[in-house]
Design a protein around this nucleic acid. Sequence first.
DNA 1: TTCCTGGGTGGCACTGAGTGTCAATACCGG
DNA 2: CCGGTATTGACACTCAGTGCCACCCAGGAA
Lengths: 190, 190
Amino acid sequence: MAERKRQVVREELGEVALKLLAVQGFEGTTIEQIVAAAGVSRRTFFRYFKSKEDVIIEFLGDLGDFMLAELVARPVDEPPLVALRRAFGAAVDLIAEFPQKSVALARLTLCTPVLRGRYLDRQADLAREMAAELARRAGVPARDLRLELTAAVALTAYALSLERWSEDGGDTDLGALLNEAFAAIPGQDH
Amino acid sequence: MAERKRQVVREELGEVALKLLAVQGFEGTTIEQIVAAAGVSRRTFFRYFKSKEDVIIEFLGDLGDFMLAELVARPVDEPPLVALRRAFGAAVDLIAEFPQKSVALARLTLCTPVLRGRYLDRQADLAREMAAELARRAGVPARDLRLELTAAVALTAYALSLERWSEDGGDTDLGALLNEAFAAIPGQDH
DNA sequence: TTCCTGGGTGGCACTGAGTGTCAATACCGG
DNA sequence: CCGGTATTGACACTCAGTGCCACCCAGGAA
């Protein structure tokens, strides 16, 4: 009951914030403006989000968790790059369901230094976790150099696709971009 | 003349700051403490550094510029990954000249979220610039997917080496770690 | 109905980063 | 010794983020 209300306030705050941030830019928008538009106090904002960045970044966190879960769900006999591509494909489908919101989010993240930093940080973390999962599947010890590099290059391919997609304004087919980027990864034909 | 003095103050400020930050951590150290130890005013600090982060990050920026210059200086007929490995090797030699300072810098950067974000941001930028240089050498249009992925994976190999090296406290041979990491990059044998 | 208890909220004051402004000062050539 | 330029310090300000406390408003117990 009270839990429902919390979720509603949180989503409302997130929506209002994204709208303002997308229009005025990250640095150009103060928390004061966000909470005024949402009708809550400044103090309450910080009860829902650790920082201004977190309003935007939490979407990325959720998406990362989703991608990792998809990877875990892939059959164990798939080669690493195939499993990664399919896992990312599922995430891409999720993104494509809300193209306008995703583009706004991506644009804001990519052109705001502090957000881009947090995004890349999360990506590096994800690469580590994915490499660990790939190691588990392959039955080799964690922190395998090859697998860490594989996860990193796959995530870079994904990031490049997303970047170009958001530059195009979300018009092109993100799934196709992803496949193209994965096809450009060297050393997977043997 | 006055230019000399500026450089002296800047270096003194940088040294004092690094010492304090390494001991107390990034968040745990205030600008107040740094300027008190350096004997200048808070305002003056911000005349030399754009932000607290910049005291640390500027070293990374210089190193990145150096690596890029080394890459440009490599013979054009070297394959991309070889040219990158050699360029990084030169940077590694530079790092190995000041192991204690480099380890402090690396540790601080890697375990402070906001600094790690800036570092990764810089690394992504560098990957883009290096890919552009590789494209120029190869005579292909810029923004080549393969080359961007190559640059990104090479920088990841470098970053992984640096990470393990700093975890070891700088005891191991960073150059050897780098070669090992590059050897683990898939798809370079043909 | 009354009490009272707990989660959510707003107000307030505080720290710390970062910026603009201005007066003072130090240093240089003439 | 003097005038101009660059550096500095001091002060005031904005904004992010945090701690604290009083308040309010449900819902359960007497």
